[in-house]
Design a protein around this nucleic acid. Structure first.
Length: 422
RNA sequence: GCGAGCGUAGCCAAGAGGCCUAAGGCGCCUGUCUGUGGCACAGGAGAUCACGGGUUCGAAUCCCGUCGCUCGCCCCA
């Protein structure tokens, strides 16, 4: 038997209401903030990600689905959504559009990782990007988009964490300071952190091992070590967020794994959550477009994982509307009735009325059982008697009341109440 | 890449060397009710007990290996 590849999942019909719910809320929010949708290819030139995400990152080092296509070009299944959007911005000369350009996307993303709760090799993200405006009010606005989405989804037990990681002006000095601080305490560091000291000093801050974590309390904080420009940007952002009354928390341990982030970074995390509980993460990336060969263009965005959102919707028992289901099931008994049933269901569906045609192979009883099991509100019954009189029996499955109606009257009535025009 | 746990029908699951031609429940199908659902009752279909090897007179059950799933670490949505 074949199985879905490790780390991938089928999203069965019964799951779809969560997806539809998230997508419709996300699209509402995006529209409200003036974002336009963009869809980019599932794979790109491998160098796009190597250049943007960063050569030393885990994503590039060990998580990319990279292969040579038949023409010999190295392509990579998109491991994140920002770089392709930036590529598209450049490719289509979007700097000629009114700035900033606001775009959102839904797409699958691929990373070769060990799957576990809330982590997959293929998952789906909704993300937004604002390109071409460096003002901190844009940061505040993007954070508002994220928060607006979370709250409109009905997620409550969540925290909004923000930080500033500086820019190429001030970060090297900060990282050096951090390294110096942790080096002094090297003896108590866990093994992972000892290697982080060289590899990725910022990550020392969010180590969960108690001894390391405690050290983080007194570690130098990046927001305290910004250059003048970054510092001013940070102060303005804070004041805007205050003005907007967004319930942010400054978390000086918040760092993000991709190289391209500058200045503002933020995440949304559930209050209760395990290792990979972050449901939304993003930040500013003012150097990315130049890295990709464009002229200097600031950018900021975030992404959320639909699987993790779904997990949280279920966990916090948010009630999600059911998928629309058909109003009628057409039951039929006998060969003539089957043809009449076929005709009736075609006419109803062409009028925009959701209708299931029973194949009639089961006997009336079985067909009604099916209507019941499928939660169809009305069963329509056609047999020899009805055909002779040009009628149809309409049974209300909830009240168990039923009546014969003229076929033509019924179709007109149903079209009016449940069809396109209703 | 490292560490841990678990694999018995579509799902949940009993079972701890012979009573297993594998219990029970959900779901599915059929009938009681030959043109009327939900409830009830009766019946039915559906399992090479993950796979391979070993121990034993005898293995779903013990041992080894493989594969798969889950959870954790790294890292991330």
């Amino acid at each position: 038997m074949f199985q879905a590849p490790r780390g991938t999942a089928d999203h069965l019909p019964e799951e779809q209401k969560y997806w539809r719910y998230i997508e419709s809320k996300a699209m509402d929010v995006a529209a409200r903030f003036g974002f336009g949708r963009i869809d980019t290819p599932a794979f790109e030139d491998s160098n796009l990600f190597i250049r943007s995400v960063g050569e030393g990152t885990d994503i590039v080092e060990k998580e990319m689905y990279t292969f040579d296509d038949r023409g010999g070009d190295s392509v990579t299944l998109r491991p994140e959504g920002t770089a392709p959007v930036c590529r598209a911005y450049l490719e289509h000369g979007m700097h000629n559009l009114p700035q900033p350009v606001r775009m959102y996307y839904f797409c699958p993303v691929f990373r070769y990782e060990r799957p576990q709760a809330g982590r997959f090799r293929q998952h789906h993200q909704f993300g937004v990007e604002v390109l071409g405006d460096a003002d901190p009010s844009v940061d505040a606005e993007v954070i508002e988009v994220a928060w607006d989405l979370m709250t409109s989804l009905g997620l409550n037990e969540i925290n909004l964490l923000i930080n500033s990681v500086g820019d190429p002006q001030c970060r090297p000095a900060y990282v050096a300071k951090l390294k110096e601080y942790y080096s002094r305490h090297q003896a108590v560091l866990c093994d992972d952190c000892k290697s982080r000291l060289d590899r990725n000093p910022l990550r020392l801050l969010d180590c969960k091992v108690e001894a390391c974590h405690a050290l983080g309390n007194d570690a130098p904080q990046s927001a305290e070590n910004l250059c003048e420009d970054c510092s001013e940007h940070w102060a303005k952002l804070i004041s805007y967020l205050d003005k907007m009354q967004l319930p942010y928390q400054i978390d000086h341990r918040l760092v993000r794994g991709l190289d391209y982030y500058t200045r503002t970074v933020f995440e949304v995390q559930p209050v209760e959550g395990g290792g990979q509980s972050t449901i939304c993460g993003g930040g500013r990336y003012d150097g990315l477009i130049t890295e990709l060969g464009g002229r200097e263009t600031p950018g900021i965005g975030f992404a959320t994982g639909l699987e993790r959102l779904t997990l949280n919707l279920k966990r916090s028992e948010v009630s999600v509307p059911d998928e629309p289901s058909p109003k009628f099931l057409v039951a039929n008994v006998g060969d003539d009735a089957r043809i009449a049933a076929l005709d009736l269901s075609v006419r109803l569906r062409r009028a925009g009325v959701g209708t299931i045609l029973s194949s009639g192979t089961r006997g009336l009883r079985g067909q009604m059982r099916q209507a019941n099991a499928l939660n169809i509100p009305f069963t329509l019954i056609l047999g020899d008697d009805e055909i002779e009189k040009g009628e149809v029996v309409v049974r209300n499955m909830e009240s168990s009341e039923q009546e014969s109606k003229s076929l033509e009257d019924f179709i007109a009535e149903a079209s009016k109440s449940y069809g396109n025009g209703s």
